[in-house]
């Protein structure tokens, strides 16, 4: 059976996406930092969908070990590995990041540097294979910088640009690159932040992302209407935008 490697599958969209792939009969390799949690999820998905699910330790924040850890995962996936999904992200605390550069650095490193490095490893693997897909979660926050979370937004914006280049690079080798830009999804990032409009469930987001992968889309907004919302937000002239409290 085809196998998908998901990095950051522990919670939120990553977990929902792992569930979605398992329900479509994919075997899974779940990678992430909290191994104990991944083992529980692996057992759960194996029991629910009767697919083979393995948990493997990968720390996106540890640049020294990242490549070797990911290569272990690719080796474990072997020939049946069809795709790599990057769901790891760190919303962080924008307020704390203003005072503490370590938090600012962590937001930038997880969401951009670590993510891009992981994708480089994946790109080399699939380029050699000459098939497969790479799907990464960026964010609508990367479409325009706002005072409330511009570090996160900048890193995700960088990731979006990186993914454009990667898509271009991998087009001829036959590897599909999907950029996913979720809006508000009912995960840890959103819970407890007061009442937000238009919040989608992780399951709904995962169904949309799965469809984008199978239909070989390039860039998807999740749910779809965020494309229009962000179109309008991007269209506001900077001279006006800078005055807004967003």
């Amino acid at each position: 059976m085809p196998t998908v490697l998901i990095l950051g599958a522990n919670a939120g969209i990553g977990r929902a996406l792992a569930t979605e792939f398992a329900s479509h009969r994919y075997d899974l390799i779940l990678a992430g930092r909290d191994h104990e949690e991944l083992v529980i999820l692996a057992a759960d998905l194996g029991l629910r969908y009767k697919v083979s699910v393995r948990a493997m330790p990968v720390d996106l924040g540890n640049f020294e070990s990242l490549e070797a850890a990911l290569k272990e995962c690719f080796k474990a996936g072997g020939d049946s590995l069809e795709g790599f999904v990057l769901c790891a992200g760190h919303m962080g605390n924008p307020g704390a990041a203003k005072k503490d550069l370590r938090e600012a650095r962590r937001i930038l490193e997880i969401n951009f540097t670590g993510s891009a490095l992981a994708l480089e490893v994946a790109a080399n693997h699939f380029e050699q294979k000459g098939r497969g897909f790479i799907c990464a979660l960026s964010s609508v926050a990367g479409d325009r910088g706002r005072q409330s979370n511009y570090l996160y937004g900048a890193a995700k914006g960088g990731l979006t640009t990186y993914l454009q280049g990667l898509r271009n690079r991998l087009y001829h080798p036959g590897v599909n690159v999907i950029t996913v830009k979720p809006g508000f999804v009912d995960t840890r990032m959103v819970f407890g932040k007061g009442k937000l409009p238009l919040v989608a469930s992780p399951d709904k987001a995962a169904r949309d992302i799965y469809r984008a992968v199978t239909k070989q889309r390039d860039v998807v907004y999740v749910p779809w209407f965020w494309r229009f919302i962000m179109f309008i937000i991007r269209a506001i002239p900077e001279s006006i935008f800078k005055r807004l409290r967003m």
Binding site: N10, A11, G12, D34, E36, E37, I40, T187, R188, G192
Partner: peptide, 9 residues
């Protein structure tokens, strides 16, 4: 005041 844990810990 509601807390929704995503992990056991």
């Amino acid at each position: 005041h509601v807390c929704r844990p995503e992990k056991r810990s």
